[in-house]
Amino acid sequence: MIRVSIDPAPIELALELAALEARGAGGVASFTGVVRGDGGVTALELEHYLGMTEDALCTLAEAAMARWSLFGVTILHRVGRMGAGERIVFIGTAAAHRREALDACAYLIDRLKTDAPFWKREWRGDSATWVEPRSSDAEAAERWQA
């Protein structure tokens, strides 16, 4: 079962983990991305390509389901403006055993960074700068090319 959502609303971690546990799998792995407040960042703003983003995330989830034996995949990404310390992204995977759940979770967050049309803007008080991609993100995604 795949659950994908792109939403300005906060991510309810306990609910999402409980839903994955209820899939009846032996193990649940998750990754939560949180807005870092370092470098004077007061808020983060997320723009996305409405229409394409959901398809891109579903494609990633389907690729993970095809590659590993999974009971469930959840990909949640917030959009709009959020403050330091708030959750921005959640990836959850449920599988019979830890290795599949952990590997699929790592795959999904690595690929999401390069394969989904989101753009981040950092706010420091009243000034904003668009975030540049890191080359390490592309390398992390490459690692999963089978």
Partner: peptide, 10 residues
């Protein structure tokens, strides 16, 4: 057709 900078989600 969409034109944009490299993506930076996650």
């Amino acid at each position: 057709v969409a034109l944009f900078p490299p993506v930076t989600g996650g």
